[in-house]
Structures are given as structure tokens and as C-alpha cells.
């Protein structure tokens, strides 16, 4: 297995799937401004995906483009974490998923800008600027909803309780990461989890939300073992390319 290819697929699939989830809100946002915000976020994520998967295709050297990788793999070949494929639920659920992910993605890119691999560093540099906006946006909503009405607090607390089990996978590492870190391709991720806990903890505390004490965790996405939701996402995402191979517009 090519570790660099695998690593890029993991990061690219995270943004592809969360970008797709956000796009499902198009025309359904609770207010017009948020409808537009979520499609804008989606666009940033799809753009980051294009950069990551394009590079993955180059690294692989089999002539696959970013579109081939995005649209023509099977479910087990997608390596996104389970968190990003979880259903949108209500707006609070979507914002909680976004917040937990944005906090991670921001800290990750802050490290990857120092990658020795110049392409990864460039993608991280570009994406970090966008991710800062994303994190600010989702954090503000978590505070507003958490420290809002009894009803909004109950809903985001439920969302946090539901999604918390998927957060350990944000820090999943295996031989892929180890090889790239040893080779100096990407920097060490030491302290990433602690920084995330601190950053997330600050906002949740401001939002008067309680971090679940249940430590049962669910992982599998990085190995291609997904929840039942991914199949439905792919059915929609891949429909046009499967029905009309090579379609362009």
C-alpha cells in the first residue's frame, strides 16, 4: 500500500463526505443566510477535496483524476471517518457535527502547513484560511444554541451525546501515519488530541453543554468499514457517473 496515497484519500474523503452532507441542506436551511452559509461551506470542502484527490491520483500514478476517485470507487474504498457521514438531523445536529470536525480540521491544517511535502503544505495553507472561518461559524452556533432556550439546549446536548462516540476516530493513527511521519513527509501529530479537547472544551463550556462521560467509541471508517449511511450518500453522489459514464457538463 502507498502510504501517501492512503493518507490523501483519508483527508480527501473526509471533506468530500461532509461537503456532500452540507450540500443536502441546499434549499432547506432554517433561514436563508444559513442556507447560503452551508452551501458556501460545502463548496470550500469540495474544493479542498479536489486538491487532495487530484494529488492522490498523481501520487498513485495510474492516471486516475480527482473525479475518478470521487465518483468511481466502491464503499469499502472510501476512508472518511464515521463522524462526517452521520445524517444531518436537525440544524443543531449538523452544527455539532461541523463543530467537532472543524476544530479537528483546523488543528490538523495548522500542523500540515509545516509538512515537508510541498503539495500537502500548500493545500493546508490554502485550506486553513477557510477552516478558520468554518470553525468560527460552527462555534458561534454551538454557543448560541447551547446557551439559548431550554429547547435549543436540549437538542444540541442530544446531538453532542449522539456524536461523541465518533470523535475518537479523529485521532485514529496506524502504519500509514507512522510511515509518513518517520519519512518526514508530514510533521508529528503529537498533542493534536489534547489541543482538540481544549479547543472543543472551551466552546462547550461557554455553551453550557456537558461532555458525555460514556466512553464507548465507534470507529471503522479509516479502514473502509462504514455505517449504513455511506451507501445512501454514494448512491446519490455517484448516480450520474454510474448512469452516464464519463458525463461532463
Amino acid at each position: 500500500m502507498n502510504a501517501l496515497f492512503e493518507y490523501l484519500i483519508r483527508l480527501g474523503d473526509d471533506s468530500l463526505i461532509i461537503g456532500h452532507r452540507l450540500s443536502e441542506w441546499c434549499g432547506h436551511g432554517p433561514v436563508l443566510e444559513e442556507d447560503i452559509a452551508m452551501t458556501n461551506l460545502s463548496l470550500d470542502f469540495i474544493g479542498q477535496t479536489a486538491s487532495l484527490l487530484k494529488y492522490a491520483g498523481e501520487v498513485e500514478g495510474k492516471g486516475r483524476t480527482e473525479d475518478d476517485l470521487a465518483y468511481l470507487r466502491c464503499d469499502r474504498e472510501y476512508k472518511n471517518i464515521l463522524l462526517v457521514e452521520q445524517p444531518n438531523g436537525d440544524f443543531g445536529m449538523t452544527m455539532m457535527r461541523q463543530f467537532l470536525f472543524d476544530a479537528y480540521r483546523k488543528l490538523l491544517f495548522e500542523r500540515l502547513v509545516n509538512a515537508k511535502d510541498e503539495t500537502i503544505a500548500a493545500i493546508a495553507e490554502k485550506s486553513l484560511k477557510e477552516t478558520k472561518y468554518h470553525f468560527k461559524h460552527s462555534s458561534e452556533w454551538i454557543i448560541r444554541l447551547g446557551d439559548g432556550t431550554e429547547e435549543s439546549n436540549r437538542r444540541v446536548q442530544d446531538s453532542l451525546d449522539t456524536l461523541w462516540r465518533y470523535t475518537s476516530e479523529l485521532f485514529y493513527t496506524d502504519a500509514v501515519d507512522a510511515e509518513l511521519i518517520a519519512a518526514g513527509t508530514i510533521p508529528s501529530m503529537e498533542g493534536l488530541e489534547e489541543d482538540w479537547e481544549k479547543s472543543v472544551g472551551e466552546v462547550l463550556s461557554e455553551a453550557t453543554l456537558t461532555i458525555p462521560t460514556n466512553n464507548w467509541k465507534q470507529e471503522g471508517g479509516r479502514k473502509g468499514m462504514h455505517s449504513e449511511h455511506l451507501g445512501y450518500i454514494l448512491a446519490e453522489l455517484q448516480y450520474m457517473q454510474r448512469a452516464y459514464p464519463g458525463l461532463e457538463w
Binding site: E33, E34, I36, A37, N40, L41, D44, E130, K136, H137
Partner: peptide, 13 residues
């Protein structure tokens, strides 16, 4: 500020 995200990715409302 109405929204951090406006009519295009580069604009706020």
C-alpha cells in the same frame, strides 16, 4: 453583520 457567508464564498452579508 447578517451572515459571515454571503452570495459567494468570498463575501459576507
Amino acid at each position: 453583520l447578517i451572515s459571515q457567508f454571503g452570495s459567494t464564498a468570498c463575501k459576507a452579508h
